[in-house]
């Protein structure tokens, strides 16, 4: 039921998209023509994320130390948002490991970390898209030889049109400042 509602929402968004994209600012991340796959196995363009403020981070599902902390911080932000803001803000996790992350491993990650269903998207794609996205947001990461990633812990905020408006390189700051900014 929820799933179909969400799908409907995406269709709705997709319907208004051409109008919206004409207005996309020059520096919007939604200028990228990229296709990603969400945890439900559905393909969606980056552009389709517009219309909501998006709080997002780069993670990979095999990550055992840093990524859970990132998710925890984002969940804290979600919990502390005032009710009237809650529906206008979405949470997105992009995979930096598209070779290994499938919709299935994304769903596992959702279960393992108790991530909410309504307001969260987990997206995986290909190396090229990941590289473009991370180059644009100045996110540095590196795959170590054993399939473990060395990466920054950054939570970023996009406005409704996909313009990067904030980056928090420190998770504690991210919670307090994002909540303050969004309330």
């Amino acid at each position: 039921m929820k799933k179909s509602l969400l799908t409907a929402a995406f269709f709705l968004l997709a319907a208004v998209m051409p109008v919206l994209s004409a207005e996309l600012p020059d520096n919007s991340l939604y200028q990228f023509e990229q296709e990603w796959t969400n945890q439900y196995g559905e393909k969606q363009s980056l552009e389709s994320l517009q219309g909501k403020v998006r709080i997002f981070a780069m993670v990979y599902t095999r990550c055992t130390s840093a990524c859970p902390l990132i998710v925890q911080a984002m969940k804290k932000i979600e919990q502390q948002l005032p009710p009237e803001a809650a529906g206008k803000i979405g949470f997105v996790l992009f995979s930096m490991d598209p070779k290994r992350d499938t919709p299935e491993s994304l769903r596992d990650f959702v279960r393992t970390h108790g991530i909410g269903k309504d307001n969260w998207l987990l997206l995986t794609s290909n190396q090229d898209n990941v590289q473009e996205l991370t180059a644009a947001i100045a996110f540095n990461f590196k795959e170590a030889a054993d399939g473990v990633f060395i990466h920054q812990n950054t939570i970023s905020v996009l406005d409704a049109k996909g313009v990067l408006v904030h980056q928090y390189p420190n998770l504690e700051d991210a919670v307090s400042e994002a909540v303050k900014g969004l309330s």
Binding site: V53, I89, D159, A160, V163, V165, G181, L182
Partner: peptide
């Protein structure tokens, strides 16, 4: 969309 803009303004 006004609301969105307002929110993003707050963020800025």
């Amino acid at each position: 969309s006004h609301l969105m803009l307002f929110l993003s303004a707050m963020l800025l």
